[in-house]
Simulated scan of single mutants.
Amino acid sequence: MVRVWFGNESQGLQRDRDEFVATLHTAITDTEAAKRFYCEGIGFAVVGTTRRDGRRQTFLNHTRLPSLSLCLNEYADHPDIERREHMLEIGMWDLEEWQAARNRMAKLGYDVSAEKTSNPHQMFAEWRDPNGGGIRLTYTQRPANTGKGPDFKEDQ
């Protein structure tokens, strides 16, 4: 489920009133394992927790993705709830940032489930989170300015 909301939410999710945020909800079995994967590996941070409707919700956000929130839902009464596969793709312009994320994931012991590194202008690496959801980090080299779009400068 993807939910879009705007404005202030509880538990410290402070947003600009004009900014829309997409929240990807995913069912998990172990909050701590999921937080290790997403926070220590991918670089998300916990921005709020709540309990409602028999579940513990942990909201994650990334400083580089202010319009995306992940909600990890751990169900107390339904540990066997149906898991739905999802793939979250995060695109990056910065090769060093992409490589640093790959290195963190390897250091934490997460094996790449799929990757393409043969084209140095566009590469990706995928992992499966502890509950089978997928995340893909894609590096794309910034295009040269063609005169038909924004001026891409190295310092942007």
Rank of each mutant, 00 (worst) to 15 (best):
D16T: 10
G43T: 12
A106S: 09
P150L: 04
R51L: 08
D155P: 05
G41D: 04
Y38F: 03
P120C: 02
V47F: 09
K153P: 08
R102E: 09
T50K: 12
V2I: 14
D94L: 03
G41P: 11
S67C: 03
T50V: 12
E40D: 10
D80M: 10
L137H: 07
R83L: 12
L24A: 09
H78R: 14
G133P: 00
F37V: 00
G147I: 00
T63H: 11
P66N: 03
A106C: 08
A27H: 13
T50D: 11
I81C: 13
D94R: 09
L88T: 01
Y38L: 09
A22Y: 05
T29L: 10
A114T: 00
L108P: 15
Y75C: 14
V46K: 05
P150E: 04
N145K: 10
R15G: 01
E9R: 13
V47I: 01
G54N: 11
R36W: 00
R104Y: 12
C71I: 01
G133C: 15
G133E: 12
G7H: 07
Q141E: 12
E74F: 08
G54T: 05
T63E: 03
D94H: 05
T138L: 06
E82H: 09
D155T: 12
H78T: 13
D53R: 13
G48W: 11
E9H: 11
E40N: 02
E115C: 07
E9T: 00
L68T: 11
F152N: 10
G12M: 03
D129E: 02
Q141F: 08
R136S: 07
T138S: 05
E74K: 12
M1S: 12
N131A: 15
G147M: 05
G109Y: 00
N73E: 05
E40P: 00
G54Q: 10
T63L: 01
C39V: 05
K153E: 13
S10R: 09
E115R: 08
N103P: 14
D77A: 07
S113D: 06
D151R: 13
R3M: 13
